[in-house]
């Protein structure tokens, strides 16, 4: 109903940190002037390894509708193997954005008219010195590059705050490497935000 709300759906597996990733983006968006920020995890039946999703809505105005996102502007996928189990683009608005952690090149993905941005976040996280499988900080870098919604420096600060005491520098580095290594399927590689 409200046109001012940007809806971002985060797909991950239980325990992978999709909620933390969405929370970091929520914090960064809030300090960037988005007064309305609502993040709602899937309710009730999470278990480790199972596909889960988290709804993040952001707006310059206060948000009153807490119901889950059904028609996202963007989807962020923390794990490319989810594509076999979940229709991650369900309800995605026309010309929407898919941000994907995958070792495969972006040319291998087509989501019917959608913009697709790919980064091998799992690999970049290890390059940053994180243990294998920690992708929720790195995916934020890919999201920043592809969406252009929130400045990478603000996001990195939010990552360092969230991971305070839990390898903040390495998580921040993971996001920065992913940011520099995100390719999308637009001609000039600017995706929808145009934040080069």
């Amino acid at each position: 109903m409200r046109k001012d709300i940007i809806e971002i759906r985060w797909h991950g597996r239980g325990g992978q940190g999709a909620i933390t990733a969405a929370k970091i983006v929520a914090n960064a968006a809030f300090v960037s002037g988005y007064k309305g920020v609502v993040m709602a995890p899937t309710f009730g039946t999470e278990r480790r390894g199972a596909p889960v999703f988290t709804s993040l809505k952001i707006s310059k105005e206060k948000i009153y509708d807490l119901s889950p996102i059904t028609t996202p502007d963007m989807v962020v996928v923390l794990d490319h193997t989810l594509l076999e189990e979940v229709n991650v683009v369900a309800g995605l608005k026309e010309k929407g954005l898919v941000v994907l952690n995958s070792p495969r090149p972006v040319s291998e993905y087509t989501f019917d008219g959608m913009t697709v941005a790919v980064s091998d976040v799992s690999k970049h996280a290890v390059e940053a010195g994180l243990p294998p499988g920690i992708v929720n900080s790195g995916i934020i870098g890919a999201f920043a590059k592809a969406s252009g919604l929130v400045d990478i420096d603000v996001l990195v600060q939010a990552i360092e705050n969230e991971f305070s005491g839990k390898k903040p520098e390495k998580n921040a580095r993971s996001a920065r490497i992913a940011y520099e290594n995100t390719a999308d399927n637009t001609a000039d590689n600017t995706a929808i935000g145009g934040n080069k």
């Binding site: 929370k23 929520a26 609502v38 993040m39 709602a40 995890p41 309710f43 009730g44 948000i63 807490l66």
Partner: peptide, 10 residues
């Protein structure tokens, strides 16, 4: 429950 208890907002 959930709508407020588990939802994050500023």
């Amino acid at each position: 429950g959930y709508l407020l208890s588990h939802t994050y907002m500023p």
